[in-house]
């Protein structure tokens, strides 16, 4: 693109940015115009790029003689019957297929990656430097306590056992609060940076300050 088009584009982007930010002070027509444009362009963009991917995954194998891709293509077309009440039941077949694939992939991966390897990583050595030992004990205890907190919500009849159980749960809550505090500040970092970058776009790339 030439310099003039880039300049026009930057100005268009800056104007849309200001239209969106106007909502911070008052609801107005300009914001709603920009919001509608955002949805329109995002959906249009998504449709065109997905068409490309569809072409790659179906048309090219078909031209290479792989007729089996007609089956998933047919199943994909069946999903559109969800809009026709009389035949909506047919759209359940591809939905069932996708549910099976999605769950199968995530369950099999979760067993190894999220369960076995994480349990393996929790069983830590009680050797090494004092810092490593301290950290390993903290990780082990906090993992067990938090897991206990979420999995076991039983009120024991024996008051001693019950008070120990409540103690573990309270201890776990402190670790959860640390984790949530880190998560919350991490999220704040994200949102604040987004604001900084947009405003710096207006200052440096549009106004050239």
């Amino acid at each position: 693109m030439d310099a003039f088009t880039i300049g026009v584009g930057t100005t268009v982007a800056a104007l849309f940015t200001l239209m969106i930010y106007s909502i911070l002070f008052k609801e107005n027509v300009l914001y709603r115009f920009a919001e509608s444009t955002a949805i329109a362009v995002a959906v249009g963009y998504g449709v065109v790029t997905t068409l490309k991917s569809l072409r790659t995954s179906t048309y090219i194998p078909l031209t290479n003689g792989n007729m089996l891709v007609l089956i998933p293509l047919f199943l994909g077309v069946l999903t559109y019957l969800t809009f026709i009440k009389k035949y909506a039941w047919l759209s359940l077949w591809p939905i069932g297929f996708l549910t099976g694939v999605g769950l199968g992939l995530s369950v099999r991966g979760a067993i190894q990656a999220q369960l076995i390897e994480q349990i393996d990583a929790t069983i830590l050595p009680l050797t090494g430097s004092s810092t490593d030992l301290f950290n390993n004990i903290i990780i082990f205890i906090s993992t067990i306590a938090v897991l206990y907190y979420f999995l076991f919500t039983i009120n024991f009849k024996n008051p001693t056992v019950n008070s120990v159980s409540e103690g573990v749960r309270k201890f776990a809550r402190y670790f959860i609060m640390v984790g949530l505090g880190v998560g919350f500040s991490g999220a704040s970092l994200s949102w604040i940076v987004d604001v900084i970058v947009r405003i710096q776009f207006l200052l440096f790339e549009w106004l050239h300050l």
């Binding site: 369950v107 903290i138 993992t143 984790g179 880190v182």
Partner: peptide
């Protein structure tokens, strides 16, 4: 250390839930 331990406990719980839901 602290967050890893806490979120590992949460992750294990979520994973067990995901596996049982999948089944």
């Amino acid at each position: 250390v602290l967050t890893a331990g806490a979120y590992r406990g949460i992750l294990l719980g979520i994973s067990l839930g995901l596996i049982s839901f999948g089944i």
